[in-house]
Design a protein around this nucleic acid. Structure first.
Lengths: 116, 116
DNA sequence: ATAGGCTAGTACGCGTCCGAAACGATCGGG
DNA sequence: CCCGATCGTTTCGGACGCGTACTAGCCTAT
């Protein structure tokens, strides 16, 4: 059965999850970074810089910079594509998986609490 | 009836809505700014800088700067509290309401599309 | 072999955000 | 009437993201 949300519920869900992210303090991902991270973990690989840039409708440097930042945080890894060394394959990490596990727990809990 | 989401659904919902926001291009709100905006429109007034700072567990300059930015974008307004002129009351605007209307439409559509 | 195309990354200048500290304005109790 | 407390803002140096333009490496067809 489809998920039917009322406008107030939709906004409250968005608010509550964002509030948790802000309060957490740990996280400081841009909307773009968050979208990239989720794309890497939800869409089937392989993931390349130009592929992500096209999907998000942003320029390549945006992807490169986001990968730099998230790579430093251990959320993703880069590897040269040996078949075509121009390409860079973006890979998942254990730490990134754990981060998204926590995120999904958070969303599920907030969605569940919408209707007490 | 409560809203039950599976982990993959939760992450996909989060991804899809963020993707829409990124692709839109118009919006460029920080997680903090988004949370502040939603708080102003969902929680009962009055809203003050220190109140928002306490709720989000951030410092006051963060709130001031976010209000500067969103004020320039026409999403919120500030007004002195005449009863206690130390306070600043943060108010909603028509433009802010419209922005959140569009956001809720987006979330509702993406939630609905989760289970085709 | 080489020219032209792809790929990802880098350089630059600009704007914005950050945390910490300090500031001016305002209130309220003694 | 003052003096301490409270409120919001400003300032400072530093970090980061942005778009544009350019670079360096790789591949492929001629």
């Amino acid at each position: 059965m489809a998920i039917e949300l009322k406008p107030t519920e939709a906004l409250k869900l968005w608010h509550d999850v964002n509030l948790d992210l802000v309060r957490d303090g740990e996280t400081d991902l841009t909307t773009r970074q968050m979208t990239i991270l989720l794309t890497i973990y939800l869409d089937p690989p392989p993931h390349t810089v130009r592929g992500l840039a096209k999907k998000l409708a942003v320029t390549k440097p945006v992807i490169t910079r986001a990968l730099d930042t998230m790579g430093k945080a251990g959320l993703v890894t880069r590897r040269r594509d040996e078949a075509d060394r121009r390409n860079v394959i973006i890979q998942r990490t254990v730490q990134g998986s754990l981060y998204l596990d926590r995120l999904s727990d958070l969303i599920i809990a907030r969605a569940h609490a919408l209707r007490p």
